[in-house]
Design a protein around this nucleic acid. Sequence first.
DNA 1: CGGTATCCTGTCGGATACTG
DNA 2: CAGTATCCGACAGGATACCG
Lengths: 139, 139
Amino acid sequence: MGSTGAMGSATKQGGKVDSELACPVSPVVDIVFSRWTTPILWTLHEFGRQRFVELQRNIRTITPKVLTQRLRQMERDGLVVRTYHPEVPPRVEYEISELGRSLAPIFAHLAEWSAENLRKVERARQEFDTADEQASALR
Amino acid sequence: MGSTGAMGSATKQGGKVDSELACPVSPVVDIVFSRWTTPILWTLHEFGRQRFVELQRNIRTITPKVLTQRLRQMERDGLVVRTYHPEVPPRVEYEISELGRSLAPIFAHLAEWSAENLRKVERARQEFDTADEQASALR
DNA sequence: CGGTATCCTGTCGGATACTG
DNA sequence: CAGTATCCGACAGGATACCG
């Protein structure tokens, strides 16, 4: 790959440019990898079209407020499709869009990486932490 | 590491973790995809072993404090190797570890996804926003 | 050079309560 | 049911200054 120049195209000006310049992945990160978007996307992908409450039940610790916020953002970004059925009681269904679904292989890779390497990270942490203790014991 | 509270995974209280249950990807997200870890990892991967100041120059908008913080976390997680040369003036070099390098294919996929789909996201946003304007104009 | 030490704020997310 | 309305705390991250 090109070194300095080729990557992200310096199209934008402003604060965010540099991290984008340094890393074409950053924009995707902002869109897809926040605390809750990942679980939501995953759940939607796993269990298919779901109502608001179903999502809430499948992602137990999420609050309705946050669920709404993330869902709105993802809808705005075109990752999720919201369907409102004007009935009584109201019914709203969320499903993953095609764009959202195009992330599936990446998620799969991530899950795979996790299965293979999460342990290593944990071990590295332990080593680092105990080494740290020893270091501060020397003082 | 995690932002608020316990991140996409480890609320250690109850034992079972809901978002983890819902999404095996969350732990990886916490480790790899924060605002700065991605650019740092990318830069390290692209330009190889670098000194602190070089990293600072390559990722222009990052402040030394944050760079240190992220670097420490990544070192602790075993993604980055820090080498201290006790010279005058001091010299410290950072390089990506093997574990860190194992993320490269994922980053490549992400960059690819970005190149193909970022536009779509932007278009979706515009549509959503203008539709929103129209909707609120009706009220 | 390679960081620390402070101070400060923006934003995410949690808790709780309340509607159409 | 599907949210909205508030209040609030926590922390990543920015700005600035200083040190071995």
